[in-house]
Design a protein around this nucleic acid. Structure first.
Lengths: 408, 408
DNA sequence: CCAAATAGTTTATGCTCTGAACTATAAGGA
DNA sequence: TCCTTATAGTTCAGAGCATAAACTATTTGG
């Protein structure tokens, strides 16, 4: 039997003072309790001490360090029934992270405070298809620079950032293995250029995963699947409040679960994948929009389809109904492999929800043996900001989970 | 944004000396390096020091503690090219854990050394169907007692144990939520009675998961799926060398992935599940063995089926071929949700491998876009001892990952 | 038989936490 | 108003664990 478990604190710093690992862990622990929005309001050192089991002395020392690193600020006083009031602590409202998104027909950049609030947000329409990684990244970095300067003017310090891309990211988070809709393959975007001077770098993530992460902050469930309906269908799988990427970074690809063994070929090389039935193009084809002039633009296609649905067009209705049926089937099967109890629909699937829902719920119930109450299939509340918020959230997590990296 | 991450060392011991967590982690780290079978042979304190980055002083102190807790023993001398020879360390060969298995028609108990070697192994034929949890556990505890005494006579000290059951285990590892083939539902076996005096307890686990874990020790892959073919079809999913159970403990249930949307109803309440096509009973039915006298016993059914296959019976061949096709389909879909690169077949699927393989590989390749080279679908090497070894392995892990629990 | 090399132990020191004493600040009652 | 009580936060001595460096132990090889 081979054991390979390595305590986390030894990673990266072999030979260094391992006592420091305790400090690092406790810094994160205390910061986490400060970041938590508790119903009783902001917390004081004493409350954190009681909450964590650390002594007041330790908490004081840890908080001092968090304050001097700029992550935490003292706000007001917190009067309990009697005695000296506690000093309320909060995440420094003037520190933030950047969230960015590259999608097929736009670039988006936003600034998110440490507490997770979207402070600024801008979207630039831009055709990024087959424009090449360098060109797109150059355009994006320009927009990031503009945003960063604007943030600085408001007194906001940007510590790091996250970039969401509609494609498969490798496990190390450095390479876009493939983004068919952008025409990228094994692209290595230079992430540093987005935030040249920031103390932490920029992390890269998949768009569906990012949206899932953002969605999670609005849900109590710890395990769920976010379905990103675009040209294809992406899945963002969250297990235990963490994005589940698997060994190669490709987990949760519900778009390529087989729903029709004798169905049509899929771009992925498989056959009868969910994407070939419920992807945006697939639905459009099945609805009879092939060759239609509107096919030149995605948003046009979708609005034409919506028009047909509202008119009660039989072919469109049945195409969408079948998509719902297959989506339910794929989700039921997926939930057997990784149990999740909540599904959130995004992209075109969110838009089509009114016409999808009945067949989706029917098949989901049928094939999952009734594990999904209908309240457990939701439409995304975040819409187009989801990916951006999630990318920023990923950067946020890296700060909040490893505050020692900002020590001075 | 709500953060709930808690550093592992704070769990369970709030308020206690957190410095001790470093000690605990390092004890496990050093023990892990002793447990590893390295090509260069057993390791000395100095080698472990170099390997871990801990100083020789620390390693000495940690090893002393491991020796005094009985987990480690000094063996021989380890002469390097020059200088004082190192003292070779190894896992104490006289300490062991118990592995036990309850299955439909037998009970099995084994003793596994800390190094993972099966030292003793006994199987008792017994019809456990609908005999009730208490009766079965009473019988098993008797067998465990016999085995424990026999081990003691050989000078072997049993520290803890694991019990594998063909059913769904709850996330806490205490309740058998359902074991249809045993007729159990929400059963709470009294695990303590199996090893009354042992310092560590007995852990409960699913049979397919246990077999997967045991299989892993013979594979280099870190992510794979073990398929346990019994009356139903169980799946054991290993991600990153750990059993992946999911939030509710039911992950990897590949037997209930939908392979035929218009197929027959499944016992689980779903429809067209893999199990309804490739389960042992399902194959027997499709092969035309319904009503056959042999249906009274599982092993008989299987041997009759084998007979038909060897005769070239068309109906049997096509039933098995279809099972292979659907298995490949279900695996391809599953691998999209949790990427794994290796499949190991157990139970009747291992036995039927020669007749399954072609259709299995064809559909697996077809639907996974060629991600599985044929060398990546294996037949279990462990056979019937897999579950037992895995259950013991689970107990083993708990010792090796938390050696401080044995401190005296 | 001694120099060089390697293994393992001893000792002094530093970091981080704990626990208890201490200071600071408020509410509430006489 | 002042004193008691309660709570917040800081200071300081002490304990546990790891480090680094010096030291002892044991072997090879000239």
């Amino acid at each position: 039997m081979v054991m390979t478990a390595v305590p986390p604190y030894i990673q990266g710093v072999p030979g260094a003072g391992h006592m420091e690992a305790v400090r690092r862990g406790n810094l994160a622990l205390v910061l986490g309790r400060i970041a938590e929005t508790s119903p009783a309001g902001r917390r004081s050192r004493a409350q954190i001490s009681a909450l964590t089991g650390l002594t007041k002395a330790s908490v004081s020392s840890l908080v001092l360090e968090l304050i001097s690193s700029g992550l935490v600020t003292e706000v007001g006083l917190n009067q309990q029934s009697r005695g000296r009031p506690g000093v309320e602590l909060e995440l420094n409202p003037n520190k933030a992270v950047l969230g960015a998104e590259i999608n097929v027909d736009y670039l988006a950049v936003g600034v998110v405070s440490l507490a997770g609030t979207l402070l600024m947000h801008e979207v630039w329409e831009r055709d990024n298809r087959s424009d090449g990684v360098e060109r797109v990244m150059a355009a994006l970095s320009q927009q990031c620079a503009v945003t960063a300067v604007a943030a600085e003017k408001k007194g906001i310090d940007v510590l790091g950032g996250g970039l969401a891309v509609p494609g498969l990211i490798d496990a190390a988070g450095q390479v876009v293995v493939s983004a068919p809709n952008l025409g990228w393959k094994n692209a290595r975007p230079d992430l540093r250029v987005l935030l040249p001077g920031s103390p932490l770098g920029v992390v890269l993530c998949n768009e569906a995963n990012a949206a899932a992460l953002a969605e999670m902050d609005h849900q109590s469930d710890t395990d769920f699947m976010f379905i990103s309906g675009e040209v294809g269908i992406g899945g963002g799988l969250v297990v235990g409040r963490e994005i589940f990427t698997g060994a190669d970074g490709h987990a949760g690809e519900v778009g390529h679960v087989v729903v029709d063994p004798y169905g049509s070929d899929c771009l992925c090389g498989g056959r009868g994948c969910l994407e070939t039935v419920a992807g945006q193009d697939a639905i459009a084809d099945a609805a009879g929009l092939t060759g239609h002039p509107a096919r030149s633009s995605r948003s046009l296609t979708l609005s034409v389809l919506l028009g047909l649905l509202k008119e009660g067009d039989a072919r469109a209705l049945s195409a969408v109904e079948r998509a719902g049926f297959c989506l339910g089937l794929a989700l039921a099967s997926s939930a057997r492999i990784v149990p999740f109890t909540l599904v959130v629909l995004g992209g075109h699937l969110a838009v089509l929800d009114p016409w999808l829902r009945i067949s989706l719920m029917d098949s989901l119930q049928r094939y999952s043996a009734g594990k999904f109450p209908s309240g457990n299939v939701l439409v995304s509340a975040l819409g187009s900001t989801g990916a951006l918020l999630g990318a920023a959230g990923l950067a946020l997590r890296s700060v909040l989970e490893a505050p020692h990296t900002l020590r001075r």
